[in-house]
Design a protein around this nucleic acid. Structure first.
Length: 865
RNA sequence: GCCGAAGUGGCGGAAUUGGUAGACGCGCUAGAUUCAGGGUCUAGUGGGAAAUUGCUCCCGUAGGGGUUCAAAUCCCCUCUUCGGCACCA
């Protein structure tokens, strides 16, 4: 063993060893308990970042620990390889997306290997592999058959300069395109034919199962429940005047229906134009609808935007009061929610109130709050609370809640509507007018319409010979040999769908595919998938709390119905790790600065470019644009992968944000060096020594050291189980500190050496999930032949951790007054007697009546007087 | 506005069930390592008062109130920060 710790050499050595021995390769072993540990796979951007290092270090601790505990651990890694950055690289540098992607993968894979993660690399795949996405096309076809994939015209974000659809995330908060054009006119809404997945069919189920995921963080479940947004209410039919037709509305406040004095339609509502047709309002409505359509969506839907609208010229009737209600088109009504039409009750809805005031529409109070009397003439805002119904016919006197039930029942009975549930969740639009994605397997034929590609013709391979410019339509649409095809039904000329699928589709089932990545008779080998699924522990960033995690839950349900998988939920336990943050320096003139561009210290930071004063950097998530990233490559180079892993795990608990600290990294490195020195001093004399066996009777320092050793095993085991890696590491540090101070370290007798051997061996074993290369090297230095990962996790000796003496805290009236050390075997009365005998306590209680003595076994005595 | 999470030394954080607040690390201080620097080892380190030395006391977990023998932990109110949703009918 070298005198000094050289991380680079040993890390390379053990990485090669693990790889050559295939130590992390797993197969289905029905005699062993499986454990599926998964971290969210990365997008191959080219380099790993600290977020990856943290995420995968956390996962690796659990994977290695579970393996040592005897589980058959599946710990795979792959690549979320379709997506826009590849196309941007093509636009900017003229590299083909495929080339760019696969080169990045090779680079990042090498980096991950240098981190020493315990992946079964034989299961690796990239989602842009035809052998992967062809099965996704099969899923699409099966979903199409069941009506779960459908095409619909809808409004989407449109950038006039790029001539392409943008995802919501690609629209900046000021309503412009993310590419940042000069004179950007702003993103508008454009009607488009788009493919959708019918996730709304599963809204209720997805919501219900939120209560059956005890292994998920509550805040993620809350966000999902929020996103699904269930509302219980009623549908009410408002007959149109002089017509058989009705306008259907959804409301959660059917108790206020007697107060509905007008009707509001979304500008996109089909009745908006048709009702006004031929009336004097036709032109006004048309121009209003046009204006709304052109308007920036964000601005239109902001709460602060003033309510405005236009009369359609038509009326409907309140089904309860038969009152004549003018029908308006209003900017604040959303076509996507409910029915796209809202019954307006200005007295009990603030939006309707504002609208009514602006256009002089009537107000009728129908709910009276408990205290004062509301009056339509004097009210200055809507009363949205509950109360007792008035002006509501046979429902007068009922309380709101009661009235909602009664009115819903009444509507049902009269065929005017009834109880309904509405969700905020919308269907998942998966069409992307992009090249670098999985083609949607559909052919359009003038004669047969929309025709799915027959399964035997799959895959629809993404053609390689395209030119990606970023302008105009999807590059696929310009590729004749791709677009032009034969109709599978009639054999006539057909055109291929040129949209590709949203990349979230790939990440919705990759975890299933990891169970059988080589299977080529179908998407999933059920036997293997059933063995491994569900994922026992999933680890990733909170930013996927809704999107990826909700889509995956939806996809799992679909795949279950199709018989591909057997589980209801894909992820039993979820850990959402915090972000990696570092301080940012921002100069008022030169923007964000790299730390090298800042001089001075403390309050006196100055910009090197302009000399301007810089406010002390606040902590923000590491990002290139904020110039506060730390490159893992640099860390590995300077300190080694083990130090990088150690720091990420020690600096804060996994679910909290991690504040970067160069000194903290130094500290972790220092600790490893300290352990190294201990081993290099001890390993020679302890090499052929066997650890003391369980149950050995010891005295004095030997006993104390052994006790600490076993207490540490217990603590570290419990801490890893509950993911408190920072405290697990601190417990190991304590053990190391104790070893340094223990006289046993320098004693030459056989028993001392055996106690020492056990202590030191334990340090290596407990460290192994955290700093695996380092631990392997220590292990080898102790003369062990097998890899440390093949050794079972240590168990603690129940007798060794037993305390013979315990420290009892003595309180008087709840205040700490004395401490005594007494034999642990003392009974309740003995402990109390000793506590009262204490000199200090006697002084304090002198002349007072002792009212009560409370005893907490092995902890404290509280004397009340 | 609604929902959720959090607030503990100079800093990151610990305290698993209400029972010694501040483990461990960083930083800082002192001593040792027969120069300095670095490294290492040892000790100290919440604030304040007291102190002819260790057997002293008070305050202290964002702030205020409460429950309890006992509160960082439970309850109520207020403040701050972060996150999600937000004209959703």
């Amino acid at each position: 063993m070298d005198q000094r710790y050289h991380p680079k050499e040993i890390e390379e050595k053990w990485q090669n060893f693990w790889e050559s021995q295939k130590l992390f390769k797993v197969t289905e072993d029905r005699n062993r308990k499986k454990y599926y540990l998964l971290e969210m796979f990365p997008y191959p951007s080219g380099k790993i970042h600290m977020g990856h290092v943290r995420n995968y270090s956390i996962g690796d601790v659990v994977a290695r620990y579970k393996k040592m505990r005897g589980f058959n651990v599946l710990h795979p890694m792959g690549w979320d390889a379709f997506g826009m950055p590849a196309e941007n690289a093509a636009i900017e540098h003229g590299v083909h997306p495929a080339k760019w992607t696969y080169e990045n993968i090779a680079n990042m894979k090498a980096q991950l290997k240098r981190m020493g993660f315990s992946y079964d690399w034989d299961r690796e795949f990239a989602t842009c592999d035809v052998s992967y996405y062809k099965w996704e096309q099969l899923f699409f076809l099966r979903m199409y058959e069941k009506g779960l994939a459908y095409k619909k015209r809808s409004f989407v974000n449109w950038c006039e300069i790029c001539k392409t659809v943008l995802a919501n995330e690609q629209v900046m908060s000021d309503g412009t395109c993310w590419r940042g054009h000069a004179d950007d006119p702003g993103v508008t809404q454009k009607e488009f034919d788009q493919w959708f997945f019918k996730i709304t069919d599963y809204a209720e189920e997805l919501l219900e199962w939120c209560d059956k995921l005890p292994g998920w963080p509550e805040r993620v479940l809350t966000m999902q429940r929020n996103w699904i947004g269930k509302s219980v209410g009623a549908e009410i039919h408002f007959p149109l005047e002089n017509s058989e037709e009705v306008i259907k509305v959804f409301t959660t406040r059917q108790d206020t229906v007697f107060g509905a004095t007008f009707m509001s339609l979304a500008p996109e509502h089909p009745l908006a134009l048709s009702l006004s047709k031929g009336t004097s309002q036709e032109e006004a409505v048309r121009s209003f609808v046009e204006k709304m359509r052109r308007q920036d969506w964000r601005k239109r839907t902001a709460e602060t935007t003033e309510k405005e609208g236009v009369f359609t010229g038509a009326y409907c009737l309140n089904p309860m009061t038969k009152a004549r209600m003018p029908i308006f088109v209003a900017n604040f009504v959303l076509m996507e929610y409910g029915t796209g039409a809202v019954m307006a009750v200005p007295t009990h809805d603030q939006r309707d109130f504002e609208f009514a005031k602006r256009y002089g529409l009537p107000l009728i109070v129908v709910v009276q709050p408990g205290d004062g009397k509301l009056s339509a003439e004097t009210m200055t805002e809507a009363y949205e609370g509950e109360g007792v119904l008035v002006n509501s016919g046979q429902f007068n006197g009922m309380h709101s809640a009661q009235a909602r039930e009664a009115i819903a029942e009444y509507l049902e009975k009269k065929g005017l509507g009834g109880k309904r549930v509405s969700y905020r969740l919308r269907d998942w639009g998966i069409s992307r007018q992009r090249y670098w994605g999985a083609p949607i397997p559909i052919i359009y034929c003038d004669r047969c319409g929309t025709v799915p590609v027959p399964e035997k013709d799959l895959p629809v391979v993404l053609p390689a010979n395209v030119e990606v410019t970023g302008m105009g339509e999807s590059p696929l649409a310009k590729l004749k040999e791709f677009v032009e095809t034969r109709c599978p039904k009639c054999g006539g000329p057909g055109r291929r769908e040129t949209d590709t699928m949203d990349t979230f589709v790939e990440s919705s089932w990759y975890f299933d595919r990891f169970a059988c990545p080589d299977y080529d008779e179908g998407p999933l080998d059920k036997k293997r998938v059933d063995y491994w699924m569900p994922v026992d522990q999933y680890i990733g960033g909170i930013e996927h709390a809704i999107l990826h995690l909700l889509y995956s839950r939806f996809f799992t349900r679909v795949l279950k119905e199709m018989g591909w998988v057997s589980v209801d939920e894909p992820f039993t336990n979820l850990l959402t790790q915090g972000m990696v943050c570092k301080e940012v320096y921002e100069c008022p003139r030169d923007g964000y600065l790299f730390p090298e561009e800042v001089e001075g210290q403390g309050e006196g930071f100055r910009c090197r470019k302009c000399g301007g004063q810089i406010s002390v950097g606040r902590l923000e998530k590491m990002s290139k644009s904020k110039k506060n990233v730390v490159d893992p490559e640099y860390l590995i180079e300077k300190y080694g992968a083990d130090t990088a892993r150690m720091f990420c795990l020690f600096a804060s608990p996994p679910e909290k944000d991690l504040d970067w600290s160069d000194q903290g990294v130094e500290g972790s490195f220092r600790f490893l060096n300290r352990v190294w020195r201990l081993f290099s001093e001890q390993h020679g004399r302890l090499k052929d020594v066997k650890a003391v066996p369980f149950g050995t009777a010891l005295e004095g320092d030997q006993k104390l050291l052994r006790q600490k050793t076993h207490k540490t095993i217990k603590k570290v085991t419990e801490d890893i189980e509950r993911f408190h890696f920072n405290t697990a590491i601190s417990a190991i540090m304590e053990l190391v500190n104790e070893i340094y101070l223990s006289p046993v370290k320098d004693q030459a007798d056989e028993l001392s050496k055996r106690v020492m051997r056990e202590a030191i061996e334990t340090v290596a074993l407990l460290l192994s999930p955290f700093v695996p290369h380092f631990a392997e090297e220590l292990w080898e230095a102790l003369g062990e032949k097998r890899s440390i990962i093949q050794r079972e996790w240590p168990d603690y000796d129940r007798e060794a951790v037993l305390e013979e003496e315990v420290l009892i805290v003595i309180q008087v009236n709840g205040k700490l007054r004395d401490r005594i050390t007494i034999p642990a075997s003392f009974g309740e009365n003995e402990v109390k007697a000793w506590a009262l005998k204490s000199e200090r306590i006697r002084k304090l209680t002198e002349g007072k009546e002792i009212k009560r003595v409370i005893l907490v076994p092995k902890k404290l005595v509280n004397i009340v007087c």
